[in-house]
Computed example of a mutant assay.
Amino acid sequence: MKKQYFLLIAIFSLLISGCGKDDATEVILAKNVFALSPVSNSNISGNVSFVKYEDGRTEVILQISNSSKDIHPAYIYTNSLEEGGAVALTLEPIECDCEESITVVSKLDNGTPITYEQLISFNGHLKIHQNADNLEVVIAQGNIGVNAQ
C-alpha cells in the first residue's frame, strides 16, 4: 500500500512540474542598463534595465539594494535630473524585500505609444521615492536615455 501511495505522489509531482511555464525560452533581443545613484545619504543604489524581447514586449526592470521595508514608488520623468520635468511613465513600485520591480511598457501615462528604441533614447530621468506618503523624498535616481550619455 505504501508503495502505491508513493508512486501516486511521484506521478502527481511529475505532472505538476511539467505544467509550469518555461522561462528559458524567452529570447532577449536587446538590453540597455542605466545606473541609479543614492540620494540624501540613503545608501540605496541600483539600476534600471530596458529589455526588448522577441515577442515584441518591452520591460522596465528596476533593481535596488539596501532599501527599507517600504513599498517604493518609481517614475520616469521628462528631461534630465538637472532640468526636472513631469511624470511621463508610472512604473510598478518596488516591493519591500525583493528590491525589484518589472513593468511591461507599451505607452506613456498620457497614452502615447513608446517602443524599446524610443525608451532607450528618451529625454528623461528616473526617480525612486521613499513611499507613497513621502513622494517628496527621493531615495535613488538617475538620468536615462539621451541624458545618461
Rank of each mutant, 00 (worst) to 15 (best):
K2C: 13
Y5C: 11
L8Y: 11
A10L: 15
I11A: 14
F12G: 12
S13Y: 11
L14A: 12
L14C: 14
L14Y: 13
L15S: 13
L15I: 12
I16E: 07
S17V: 14
G18I: 08
G18C: 11
C19M: 13
G20Q: 09
G20D: 10
K21D: 06
D22H: 06
D23C: 01
D23S: 06
T25G: 02
E26Q: 06
I28C: 00
A30G: 06
N32A: 04
N32Y: 00
F34V: 00
A35M: 06
L36W: 00
S37G: 08
V39T: 06
V39G: 00
S45M: 07
S45K: 09
G46T: 01
G46I: 01
G46M: 02
N47V: 06
V48H: 03
S49Q: 10
V51A: 01
E54Q: 12
D55S: 11
G56F: 03
G56T: 08
R57Y: 03
R57K: 14
T58A: 00
T58P: 00
T58M: 00
V60T: 10
V60Y: 06
I61Y: 03
L62H: 04
L62Y: 06
Q63G: 09
Q63N: 14
I64A: 14
I64V: 15
I64L: 15
S65R: 13
S67T: 14
S68R: 12
K69M: 13
H72K: 13
P73I: 04
P73E: 09
Y75R: 10
I76A: 06
N79V: 09
S80V: 11
S80R: 08
S80G: 09
E82K: 15
G84T: 14
G84S: 11
A86E: 13
V87T: 15
V87F: 06
L89W: 08
L91F: 10
E92M: 11
E92Q: 13
E92G: 07
P93I: 09
P93H: 05
E95Y: 13
E95V: 15
E95T: 15
C96H: 13
E99S: 14
V104F: 09
V104Y: 12
V105H: 01
K107E: 14
K107V: 09
N110W: 04
N110E: 04
N110A: 08
P113K: 08
I114N: 05
T115Y: 03
Y116D: 02
Q118P: 05
Q118E: 14
Q118Y: 00
L119S: 06
I120V: 10
F122D: 00
F122I: 05
F122R: 00
G124M: 04
G124T: 05
L126H: 03
K127L: 06
K127F: 03
I128Q: 03
I128E: 02
I128S: 07
I128V: 13
H129L: 09
H129V: 02
H129M: 11
Q130V: 07
N131H: 02
A132R: 12
D133V: 08
L135P: 03
E136P: 00
V137Q: 09
I139D: 05
A140M: 11
A140Q: 02
Q141N: 09
V146R: 11
V146G: 04
V146P: 01
N147F: 00
Q149G: 08
